[in-house]
Lab assay of single mutants.
Amino acid sequence: RKEMTAACTPRRRIINLTSVLSLQEEINEQGHEVLREMLHNHSFVGCVNPQWALAQHQTKLYLLNTTKLSEELFYQILIYDFANFGVLRLSEPAPLFDLAMLALDSPESGWTEEDGPKEGLAEYIVEFLKKKAEMLADYFSLEIDEEGNLIGLPLLIDNYVPPLEGLPIFILRLATEVNWDEEKECFESLSKECAMFYSIRKQYISEESTLSGQQSEVPGSIPNSWKWTVEHIVYKALRSHILPPKHFTEDGNILQLANLPDLYKVFERC
């Protein structure tokens, strides 16, 4: 597991931080080997919608929660590849102030007048994250320049770009939802926020969305749709870069829909 690298990086740093090793061990302890084997050997059937997909393993048909699986995938990559990410360069710098204002204007932020003026909160978020810029760049390849612009994001899987519609809320939550006081809790909560931002979430995906850094293989055609990215990038990574937690067998994120021999018997009677 320590050699797990989802995106190509030129050289690998050895990380011996106790906090990170502890988080890696927790993933191992909570892992479910049968689910790992199923995901490793599954045959992708198709997307139901951005949140759900169908896959077959041996004779069984499964309904998989793409949102939760991708979130767990990105969390584990962030923990196992800690401080070893490439950088996704933004085509132009994104001012943190503008991103924070967009987030505060969104109902998702939960902002009320009692929280104070949005401009003041946005300025605080910019200054707060600028103070964390060195650590964010060093460990997470999340790059913020001296003017308070976001200029780079971590490359977690080759050819995958997170849904940038979720970027404003991500920046807001970096400042408000991460435990910045304790090292282990900081790395864990920061990785979880980043994983949620990178995950496939239906509120940020339309039929026209593209999450891939590449064009489709047909010359002159439109960019790959999110469905292509889910199948050929995300579920491909799920084959080798995730140890599913045991609770996925109990919380409805992986559901067995049918045993195909039983279905064949039904059709034979028709």
Results as ranks from 00 to 15, higher is better:
Leu99Met: 10
His232Glu: 05
Ile77Asn: 03
Ile205Pro: 03
Glu182Ser: 12
Met196Gly: 10
Gln214Gly: 10
Ile79Asp: 01
Pro162Lys: 02
Asn159Cys: 10
Cys8His: 07
Leu255Met: 12
Ala175Pro: 04
Lys130Asn: 14
Phe187Glu: 00
Glu92Leu: 06
Pro93Tyr: 05
Glu25Phe: 07
Gly120His: 07
Leu54Met: 13
Tyr204Leu: 07
Leu243Arg: 13
Glu185Trp: 06
Tyr80His: 13
Val161Trp: 11
Ala55Met: 07
Leu102Gln: 14
Ile242Asn: 02
Gln215Leu: 09
Val34Cys: 12
His42Gln: 09
Leu104Gly: 01
Lys131Leu: 11
Tyr80Asn: 09
Ser19Asp: 03
Thr210Leu: 07
Phe140Ile: 05
Glu177Asn: 07
Pro117Glu: 15
Leu136Glu: 01
Pro107Ile: 12
Gly31Asn: 08
Glu182Pro: 05
Pro107Arg: 11
Val126Gln: 07
Leu17Thr: 04
Glu165Val: 09
Val48Phe: 06
Glu183Leu: 02
Pro95Trp: 06
Gly110His: 12
Glu182Trp: 08
Leu255Glu: 06
Glu26Leu: 05
Leu39Thr: 02
Lys130Val: 10
Thr176Tyr: 10
Leu164Ser: 07
Thr112Leu: 08
Thr210Ser: 07
Leu23His: 02
Val266Arg: 15
Met4Ser: 11
Glu71Asp: 05
Ser225Ile: 06
Ser91His: 12
Leu153Gly: 00
Asp158Cys: 14
Glu123His: 09
Arg1Val: 15
Thr18Lys: 07
Arg13Glu: 06
Leu167Gly: 00
Asp115Phe: 07
Asp98Lys: 10
Ala83Gly: 15
Thr176Ala: 10
Gln51Glu: 12
Val87Trp: 14
Lys236Gln: 10
Leu54Lys: 00
Lys130Ile: 09
Lys236Ser: 08
Glu114Gly: 12
Leu142Pro: 00
Ala55Asp: 01
Ile151Thr: 15
Leu64Ile: 10
Thr9Lys: 08
Asp105His: 09
Lys130His: 08
Glu165Gln: 09
Glu177His: 09
Tyr235Thr: 00
Glu33Leu: 09
Arg239Tyr: 00
Ala94Arg: 15
His241Thr: 07
Ser91Lys: 15
Glu25Gly: 09
Pro261Val: 08
Thr112Val: 14
Tyr235Asn: 01
Ile242Thr: 03
Lys68Phe: 08
Ile79Phe: 02
Lys184Thr: 07
Pro245Val: 02
Leu156Thr: 03
Phe248Leu: 13
Lys192Asp: 02
Glu268Ile: 05
Arg269Gln: 08
His247Val: 11
Asn84His: 03
Ile254Asp: 01
Ile157Asn: 02
Ile233Val: 14
Trp52Phe: 13
Tyr235Ile: 03
Leu35Thr: 13
Arg13Trp: 10
Lys227Pro: 05
Ile144Lys: 01
Ser191Met: 08
Thr67Ala: 05
Thr67Ile: 03
Trp228Asn: 06
Arg1Tyr: 10
Phe197Tyr: 05
Arg173Tyr: 01
Thr66Asp: 01
Ser221His: 09
Phe170Val: 00
Val230Gln: 02
Leu104Met: 13
Arg13Asn: 07
Gly46Phe: 09
Ala122Glu: 01
Val48Asn: 00
Ala6Trp: 07
Leu164Pro: 07
Val230Cys: 07
Gln256Thr: 15
Thr9Gly: 06
Arg12Pro: 06
Arg13Leu: 06
Leu238Lys: 00
Ser189Phe: 04
Glu72Met: 06
Gly213Ile: 14
Pro95Lys: 11
Asn28Trp: 13
Gln256Val: 09
Ser141Val: 02
Ile15Asn: 06
Leu164Glu: 05
Leu35Ala: 13
Asp115Val: 09
Phe187Gly: 03
Gly148Leu: 09
Asp251Val: 05
Glu25Leu: 10
Leu63Ser: 02
Gly152His: 09
Glu177Lys: 06
Pro50Leu: 06
His32Gln: 10
Leu102His: 12
Leu190Gln: 01
Phe97Ile: 10
Asp181Glu: 12
Asn259Trp: 04
Lys192Cys: 06
Glu114Asn: 12
Asp138His: 04
His232Cys: 06
Glu217Trp: 11
Pro154His: 00
Leu136His: 00
Ser22Asn: 14
Lys118Val: 06
Asp158Lys: 12
Ser199Phe: 00
Gly148Pro: 02
Lys68Ile: 09
Ala6Gly: 07
Ala237His: 08
Leu64Phe: 13
Leu174His: 00
Glu182Asn: 10
Lys60Met: 15
Ser141Gln: 09
Lys130Gln: 14
Val126Trp: 04
Glu185Asn: 14
Glu165Asp: 14
Arg89Tyr: 15
Phe140Thr: 03
Thr66Glu: 01
Ala6Tyr: 04
Trp228Gln: 08
Gln24Phe: 03
Ile222Tyr: 12
Thr176Gln: 15
Asn41Met: 13
Leu17Trp: 06
Leu17Gly: 04
Asn259Leu: 10
Gly46Gln: 15
Leu23Ile: 13
Pro117Tyr: 08
Pro117His: 07
Phe97Asp: 06
Ser212Met: 13
Pro162Gly: 02
Ala7Gly: 09
Pro163Arg: 12
Pro163Phe: 06
Ile169Asp: 12
Leu69Pro: 00
Glu134Ile: 09
Arg89Lys: 10
Cys47Met: 05
Leu21Phe: 10
Leu61Gln: 04
Glu134Val: 08
Val266Lys: 15
Asn49Glu: 08
Asn41Ser: 06
Ala55Glu: 01
Lys60Tyr: 15
Arg201His: 02
Ala100Ser: 10
Phe187Ala: 03
Thr210Trp: 07
Ser109Glu: 07
Ala83Phe: 01
Cys270Gly: 15
Asn49Ala: 08
Glu113Pro: 13
Ser212Val: 14
Thr112Asp: 09
Ser141Asp: 00
Met135Ser: 03
Leu172Glu: 04
Asn84Cys: 05
Gln58Phe: 05
Glu147Asp: 12
Gly86Ser: 14
Ser221Arg: 12
Phe248Gln: 01
Asn49Trp: 02
Asp105Glu: 14
Asn224Trp: 09
Glu177Trp: 10
Pro117Asp: 15
Leu64Asn: 02
Lys192Pro: 02
Val87Asp: 08
Ile14Phe: 08
Ser109Ala: 14
Ile205Tyr: 08
Arg36Phe: 05
Leu211Arg: 15
Gly220Asn: 14
Ser212Gly: 12
Lys68Gly: 11
Tyr80Gln: 12
His57Tyr: 14
Asn179Leu: 10
Gly31Thr: 07
Leu260Ser: 12
Arg11Phe: 12
Ile169His: 15
Pro117Val: 07
Glu29Leu: 12
Glu119Lys: 08
Lys60Ile: 12
Ile125Thr: 08
Arg1Lys: 12
Glu123Ala: 13
Glu185Cys: 09
Glu114Gln: 12
Met4Arg: 05
Glu113Met: 10
Val178Ala: 04
Asn149Asp: 10
Ile169Ser: 13
Gly213Ser: 13
Lys118Tyr: 06
Thr18Arg: 12
Ile77Glu: 02
Ser191Asp: 01
Thr5His: 05
Val266Gln: 15
Ser43Trp: 04
Ile205Lys: 03
Glu72Pro: 00
Leu172Asp: 02
Phe248Ala: 03
Phe267Asp: 15
Leu150Asp: 01
Thr210Phe: 07
Ala7Asn: 07
Val126His: 07
Val161Asp: 06
Val126Thr: 14
Lys192His: 12
Glu113Thr: 08
Arg173Ser: 04
Pro93Gln: 10
Pro223Gly: 13
Leu255His: 13
Met101Ala: 05
Ser240Val: 11
Ser199Glu: 00
Gly110Trp: 10
Ile205Cys: 11
Ala122Phe: 02
